[in-house]
């Protein structure tokens, strides 16, 4: 990352990247839920456990990215406050 960029702009780039990742994870989760539901309705119950595990992992990923975004934002605000 270019250090000459203002911190807020760099922060926004990081946030945009993280947000795009969250969107991808949520879309994957939507697909996973529909596939698991379809499989369950077809009577194949063995797909329910791996579906729940992967969905949990994706949710943890989303949560981690959200915390990352919060941290970047807090850092940017703090540096802005400390700016003379």
């Amino acid at each position: 990352m270019d250090p000459s960029l203002p911190h807020r702009r760099r922060g926004l780039t990081a946030i945009n990247g993280a947000m795009a990742l969250v969107v991808v994870l949520v879309i994957t989760q939507v697909w996973l839920l529909s596939a698991t539901l379809d499989s369950f309705l077809a009577g194949r119950r063995s797909a329910a456990l791996p579906g729940a595990i992967f969905s949990g992992l994706l949710f943890l990923g989303c949560g981690a990215l959200y915390l990352f975004i919060l941290r970047i934002e807090r850092q940017a605000r703090k540096e802005e406050r400390e700016k003379p």
Partner: peptide
């Protein structure tokens, strides 16, 4: 910043909803 954070929060809550849905299927 606020808009992006709120949007990501919304997406994370959606993700939680999907996870709960998967858990419901597992319980069923």
């Amino acid at each position: 910043y606020v808009a992006r954070c709120q949007f990501t929060k919304f997406l994370t809550l959606t993700s939680l909803g999907m996870f709960v849905g998967n858990l419901w299927i597992l319980a069923k």
